[in-house]
Design a protein around this nucleic acid. Sequence first.
DNA 1: GTTGACGTTGTCGTTGCGGCAGCTTCTACC
DNA 2: GGTAGAAGCTGCCGCAACGACAACGTCAAC
Lengths: 252, 252
Amino acid sequence: MEWPIAEVARMSGVTARTLRHYGEIGLLPPVRIGANGHRYYGECQLLRLQQILVLRALGLGLPEIGRVLAEQVDEVEALRRHHRRLLAERDRLDALAGTVSRTIAELEQSRKDGTPMTVNRPENLFEGVVPSQYQESLRDFPEHAEEVARRVAAMTPQEVEAGQRERTAQMIRLAELMAAGHPADAEPVQAETDARYRALTALRAVSTEEYRAMGRSCVDNDAWRAAYEAIAPGLAAYQRDAIEAYADTRLS
Amino acid sequence: MEWPIAEVARMSGVTARTLRHYGEIGLLPPVRIGANGHRYYGECQLLRLQQILVLRALGLGLPEIGRVLAEQVDEVEALRRHHRRLLAERDRLDALAGTVSRTIAELEQSRKDGTPMTVNRPENLFEGVVPSQYQESLRDFPEHAEEVARRVAAMTPQEVEAGQRERTAQMIRLAELMAAGHPADAEPVQAETDARYRALTALRAVSTEEYRAMGRSCVDNDAWRAAYEAIAPGLAAYQRDAIEAYADTRLS
DNA sequence: GTTGACGTTGTCGTTGCGGCAGCTTCTACC
DNA sequence: GGTAGAAGCTGCCGCAACGACAACGTCAAC
């Protein structure tokens, strides 16, 4: 018993285009191709198509389905991997939705206040840590400020500017990682934190406890918190958490 | 003050390729293009780039970002729409993960039992409602069976087979909707249920209560339940729920 | 004069098809 | 035997957002 492509399409609910596509990529070749080029499918193909559709409905990709049906990989194992991916993606979207929700609340608050909007008007984004503000904020760490001031004085203006840009870029990447839903102790975030820590120690030696204290200042120090929150709501706390996690796992 | 592309890339953390891409699609054209073709960006472009990056980190697509920055659409409104999309996608993945999880459990159970696996071996998928089995199962609805038998006898074999294929295709679509995470009362599921109800009433008039009873039989009748569960675990109950919801909202 | 860093444009690949164009084939009917 | 309609075929473009090349131009330094 053989069926032409349109018949199979009607039986299975997929389009003829899809069947041709599956044939093209080798997932479901027709049992026979007539002298006129027409595709014909047999019972085996229908069975295979059903397996494909079930796995597809479960969200597996076509290459993965091909591997499962070729019995090269265990289907339960494949589904378990897939399940983990689904949960991770769900959690990411959940965190992202939270960020978006908070951003909306911030924007509406700004709108009522008449204060400039942070997302649409991030004038201070590249200037969020201007030297004056930055150094003024360093009052919490007098000896750090002193040392840094001496180092900066020894640098060319170009070097100072470059360093500042680099810090800003790091902050932006951090904000993006946060908004993308990565938890503060996730690998990419920790890698960024590591880079920041190294940049900092290049200016002056910083002990683990001092670094933790600076992390807490991201939230506790008004000027710093404002600068971080101006970039993205929640960034101050996020950075503090990232620093805490970094100190816990890599500096202990 | 102008910066070449690599400088902007370093400052913002995106690649030069990305900047070129944004230029290509008109999202962020350089302020100036040198005689040698090199791109140069000014402060306005940096600001715009930051707005782009923030919105991008929140998950908006580039066309949407373009519309927001052109101030053609309200950003809070855009974010709210986006938020809804995020939640819907999260819920879909959540339901899908549940389906995958149940499928894994079924497969492991089958493996222990030695019973054939449902996903990998849906031999009876296109034969799940073979006429004999189907009519045998109709014992629960004697008068329905009688009427249907008379109608079927008056049809050509081709018509009978076509009707059967159509029912099978409908079941498969239903299974896919279920696996995709749609709740039983979701619109596409209800639309499918409507189609099935119409196909049924074409054979014989069916009252609301009779239809409800048939829905419950999907689970209660062993043969039917087996046929549905052979396609996808949970499909029997899913179909019953879909029919209940359909009877509630469209037949009352 | 060459090396190396930086720039350009252009194309392919990603995922899973939908949609269209242009053409052939098959079947039915007059 | 001609023709209309249905169904088939093979490409190719498009989607989202770039990454990863290739092949080539340009600029300063040694």
